[in-house]
Simulated assay, not measured.
Amino acid sequence: MTRLLVLLLLALSSTSYGFRMLEGEFTANKTCDLWCSFKKHRNTGNHQTAIGSIYRIMGDNKPGGEWLQIRDKDNSIRWVNKTCGNIKINKPIPFDYFILSISWQPTFCKEQKNKPECQSSNTLFALHGLWPTTDKKPYPAYCQGQIAKPFGHYTTLPLDQELSKKLSSNMPGTQSYLDRHEWHKHGSCSGMDVKTYYTKSVNYFQWFSDSPVAKQLKSHKGKIVSSKQVKQWINQWSASQSISLHCIKQNNKTVLKEIRLYLKKELPVSPNSQSFFQYAKRSNCPDSFYLTP
């Protein structure tokens, strides 16, 4: 009966808050209220955390949300703000493959003219991110209990000078703290530490940038290309089921916005043709599209 009640409460939480089940431990480092309902600020019995005490994590209100659901010492289910302690997630959130997202930077900068990285850049390809992905929703995000924040509100990532330089060169968005956002939202789900995550991200991005596909696209900037032709370039390098193209409407033209590489979950540090995951969601680009210069 008790187990049935717990499952019912979790189901209700999921419906109301986008609840995500997690397994782990929360260690309180300050005294905070333990709410029956954080939305209504209801704390029946005036429960509070005890500094140094460890609580079992049941889940959070949503990926990137501010609230953890825990079991209090009397076995009741309560909500606590994530800033009230340290979070340790014991069971990784599963995923099936990676998506390496690569922006066609001129299209991005047409939309985001005021971004720092768009003021003086002449880059065509830009690293957006490396995303652990599954076909089942919700997609993995903020997997170590992180809170979603504006990009610049995250602290500097602990990367050495050489890797930081490489990352800045390949991900112009570091000027807008994109690297911090991508690590907390996606890298935290990768099973890698931050250095390994960005080493592989840069290596795979550079692998694509040096590919015949990238060279052909660069040589056709400012021109209309056919999807059929681009697929032929892709097939010469890899397999069409491992790369997808994504377009948007911009100034009454259909333009390339993003290229996605689908990669295996077990990524070696050095990319090779065996790294591809033979699956790609259908490209949304039409028969022909424009490569913004």
Rank of each mutant, 00 (worst) to 15 (best):
R20S: 12
F26H: 05
N90Y: 01
L100I: 04
G85Q: 15
G52D: 07
K88I: 11
N46I: 01
T83G: 02
S101Y: 04
I93V: 06
N81D: 14
S76V: 01
K40C: 05
I93Y: 11
F26T: 03
G45D: 00
S14C: 10
E25Q: 11
N43A: 14
V80R: 02
G52Y: 08
T15L: 10
D96N: 07
R20E: 11
M58G: 06
D74C: 15
I77T: 09
D72L: 02
G65L: 01
N86L: 14
L9K: 10
F19S: 04
A11E: 11
G52R: 03
S53I: 00
G59Q: 06
Q69M: 11
G85V: 09
H47N: 09
R56M: 07
T49N: 11
E23N: 12
W67D: 07
R71K: 10
S13E: 13
G24E: 06
W67M: 05
L22K: 15
Y17M: 01
D60G: 10
L10M: 14
D72T: 04
L12A: 10
P63I: 04
R20Y: 09
S37H: 13
F98Q: 05
T44E: 04
C32V: 04
T49F: 06
G52M: 12
L10Q: 13
G52K: 03
S16D: 11
R71N: 08
F98W: 07
K62S: 12
L34Y: 03
S101R: 09
G59A: 14
Y17E: 05
E23H: 05
L9M: 14
I70F: 07
L34F: 07
T27G: 11
L10H: 10
L9P: 04
I87D: 08
R78L: 15
T44C: 13
G65Y: 01
S76Q: 03
W67K: 01
K91P: 04
G24R: 07
I77W: 07
